[in-house]
Each structure stands twice: as C-alpha cells, then as structure tokens.
Amino acid sequence: MVEHNAPQRLVELLSTDGESITAAWIDGVSTSLRGRVSAAELNRELHELYAATLDALRKGATDGTGEDFSEVRALLTELSRNRARQGFSPSETAAGVFGLKSALEPFLEDGSVEDVRALLRMNRLLDQLGLFTIETYARTREEIISAQADQLLELSTPVVKLWDGVLAVPLVGTLDSARTQVVMEKLLQALVDTGSEQAIIDITGVPAVDTQVAQHLLKTVMAAQLMGAECTVSGIRPQIAQTIVALGIEFGDIVTKATLADALRHALRKSGTDLVARDGGRR
C-alpha cells in the first residue's frame, strides 16, 4: 500500500498545485542562474520537464531510469548539453532538477505520513534525475574540451607558403604523436594542393628535442619525401645540436639548418631560384 500511495499523492499534489509549484521552481532556478538564461527559455524548459515528470508519475512510475521516464531524460539531456555549451557549472546545471525539491516542500508541510513518504519518494526520484543531468553535462564538457583541443592542435600547426614551390611548418611547443600526425597530414595535403617540392620544418619554437621528438620529425620528413618533396629541418640551436649528438640521433641525409632564413635560401637554390643582394652579389 505504501508503494501505491506515495506516487498517487505526488500525482494529486503536482496536478492540483502545478502552477504554484512550477512558479516557485522557476523562481528558485532563475535566482541560482543569476539571469544568465532568459525567462522565456527557462519557463519553457521547466514547464516541459514538469509536464513530462507528471505524465510518468501518472503511469505509476517512480524510477527515473525506467522507460516511463525516457521523455524526461531526453529533456534533461537537451538542458544539460545547452548548459555545458553556455559555460554553466555542474551545480548550476543540476539546480534545474534539484530546485524542484525546494519548490515542493511548502506544499507538503502538514506532516502526514503519506506526505512524508511522497516527499521522500520524490527526493529519490529527483536524485536519480539530478545524477543523470550531471553525467550528461560531464560527457558534453568532455566532448567540447576534446573538440577545442583538436582546434588548437590545428591552429598550432600551420603550413605556410613562403615562396612558389616552398612550404614551411613552423612548430612551437612540444611535438607529440597526436601533433605529429596532424603536422604530417596538413603538410602532405599542402604539398599536393600547391605542387611544392621543397618543405621546411622549423623547430625554433620547440623547447627541447629528445629521442621521441626526433623520431616524430623523421617520420614527417620521410612522409614528405615519399610525396616527392625534399625536407629541410631548421631552427637547430646549439643546445639542441648538443642534445642530438649526445643522444646519438641520426638524421641521415636530411638537410638541417640553424635558422629559417638559411633553410629558405637552401630551398630556393634547390628550386632553381637565385637570391641577389642589393649590392649585386649573389647569395
């Protein structure tokens, strides 16, 4: 009998005092969000949630993970993803669910056993839905962070056309496997798109070169060579040169230069272009 009365009392309460409860719910959530969501949007979201929750309770369901609450979970998924994209915190997002607890309390103050059971049952339900909301929010934030990381990776590995037939990839920061893959893909595609036969990989902005970084560089150079392009590695500072020698890293027949300017002069000569100084001398 207990299992039957609690949902029945909740349906009665939510049906009779629906407008007052939703008004209190909207007011409480609006305060926690500090006006960062428009009143119209918040009103629509919470009214839809309220109606879907009441509909599930009318079916006798009180398990937020059950089939009868699928529409409620769908609405919470949309709400959570929107909040995550808008930059809200997990607690601000969960307030959309947990705020209903506070809104309900004044309507269950007569202290009857039935009301207490109904409130406990509703609290358990809202805890389930709140947990679902936070989990959905967390997944969405992970997706956003991953997408932003990919975008930053793209931006941090530009392929620049220095001259007709000469491309350059100025690298800044640490070179790892994921970034090497992006560098390789962008460089190879640029070689195809521009028909270039000379490529410069500039590591002036790479703080240190270890065995792993060297291997990544060699893979990129070899991939470019397979496309018919000659690669020059520039930005070999004295400290990096010493490290490479100490580690016993072999660059083989790969051309290396101290500066990007030296590498560009080499690439231009290889492409059949002569540089003439202002005084008329060749360089």
Rank of each mutant, 00 (worst) to 15 (best):
V172E: 03
T211L: 08
E67R: 12
Q181M: 12
L108T: 15
T22K: 08
V37N: 04
Q239C: 02
I236N: 01
T243Y: 01
L191T: 04
S156K: 02
F107Q: 03
V159A: 02
L153N: 14
P106E: 07
K270R: 14
K257W: 11
E48W: 08
V182E: 00
V159H: 01
K219Y: 07
E3L: 09
A261V: 14
L155S: 01
T62A: 08
R179I: 03
L79G: 06
R237D: 04
I249K: 03
E45F: 08
A178Y: 13
E143N: 05
R44A: 12
A168I: 01
Q181G: 11
G66D: 13
V172K: 00
P7G: 06
T256N: 04
S102G: 10
D68S: 13
T243G: 02
K186T: 00
L76F: 05
V2G: 12
L104V: 15
I249G: 03
A258D: 01
E67Y: 12
M1F: 15
D127V: 06
P106T: 07
I21Q: 07
Q225M: 14
L275E: 05
G99S: 11
R139N: 09
L264V: 08
R9H: 08
L42V: 03
S112Q: 13
R85H: 14
E197V: 12
E114Y: 11
T180L: 09
A190P: 00
G60R: 00
L155F: 02
V276R: 07
R265C: 11
H47G: 11
A52N: 06
F69S: 13
V169M: 11
A263T: 09
R34N: 15
Q198N: 06
Q128Y: 09
A178K: 12
L131S: 10
P207L: 06
I203L: 04
A246E: 15
L33H: 05
G28F: 08
G228Y: 08
A84Q: 01
K161W: 15
L54Y: 06
A258N: 07
N123P: 05
L162V: 01
R278T: 08
E19Y: 14
A258V: 08
D202S: 04
A52G: 05
V160Y: 09
S38K: 10
E71G: 10
D274A: 08
Q151E: 15
I249L: 10
L217W: 05
G195T: 07
L191E: 00
E230A: 08
T204C: 07
E92T: 02
V160Q: 06
L153G: 11
E250G: 07
A229L: 09
V29I: 13
Q8E: 15
V113Y: 13
K186V: 01
V169Q: 03
D274M: 09
I240C: 04
T62D: 04
N123E: 13
T256H: 03
R73N: 07
D27L: 13
I254E: 05
